[in-house]
């Protein structure tokens, strides 16, 4: 499945006027490809991710997921899309304090009404895939920053989405752990045929990307991959 953002414009109220966060932005994310979105702070990268994740409705433009425009969906439909078809990896490893690493994943299946047994097996496989099989029973405070981010990635993949949206996945990590996370994202994108969109401000990450889009002042420009 592919995700296409076509001519998306997003503005926010700003005093008496409006601030343009995204200005006629177009972006294509294809299966098995990692698309990196770079740009300085405040350029509109996270707004782009929020629009793609159906968390914000743009003023105009289309957000197409395998041909279906997500912009016209109601709140319930958007929630279902996020649950079943889009995986989100947050900037900080946003995990639920009371759940173990395994439960961070199985809760996703619970949201989708899936039987616990099958979900448990798949969650363990995913934790193994991100190198955390042995830490399945640990809670967030018992995991390192890199481990928490891996759990977040595994959680994003739990309901087998076609699109993975990743927001600054290494911002809270040192360079060694950050590189490991990028390698992991690269590998999972290829192995699982994900259309991955990764927002980053670090140009060193572009080496992992198949496509690069730079956003400056809300406008997108395609760059050649590093």
């Amino acid at each position: 499945m592919t995700m296409h953002l076509n001519d998306v414009t997003l503005t926010y109220p700003d005093g008496d006027g409006r601030l343009t966060a995204l200005d006629h932005v177009t972006l294509h994310a294809e299966p098995g490809e990692l698309t990196a979105v770079v740009g300085p702070s405040g350029s509109g990268k996270s707004s782009l991710l929020a629009v793609a994740a159906t968390l914000i409705t743009p003023d105009s433009g289309q957000v197409l997921l395998d041909g279906t425009d997500l912009v016209g969906l109601n709140r319930k439909q958007r929630t279902r899309v996020r649950r079943d078809r889009i995986g989100i990896v947050f900037q900080s490893a946003n995990l639920l304090a009371s759940l173990t690493a395994l439960e961070q994943l199985t809760v996703m299946a619970h949201l989708a009404g899936e039987a616990p047994t099958a979900a448990g097996e798949r969650a363990l496989e995913l934790l193994d895939a991100v190198g955390l099989g042995a830490q399945a029973g640990r809670r967030p405070h018992q995991l390192s920053g890199g481990q928490r981010q891996r759990v977040t990635i595994a959680r994003g993949l739990m309901n087998e989405p076609s699109v993975l949206l990743v927001d600054e996945p290494t911002s809270a990590l040192d360079s060694e752990r950050g590189a490991a996370i990028l390698d992991l994202l690269r590998r999972l994108t290829t192995e699982r045929g994900l259309a991955t969109v990764m927002v980053t401000h670090d140009r060193d990450h572009l080496a992992h990307a198949d496509r690069v889009v730079e956003i400056v002042d809300g406008r997108a420009h395609a760059l050649a991959p590093a």
Binding site: A53, L55, K76, T79, R80, V81, R82, R83, D84, I88, F90, N94, L95, L96, A97, V107, M108, L111, A112, R155, G156, N159
Partner: peptide, 16 residues
Amino acid sequence: SPEIAILKAVGASTGY
């Protein structure tokens, strides 16, 4: 509230 926001972001309905 932050955890509720996470759950909503990853697809939990308000009803759930």
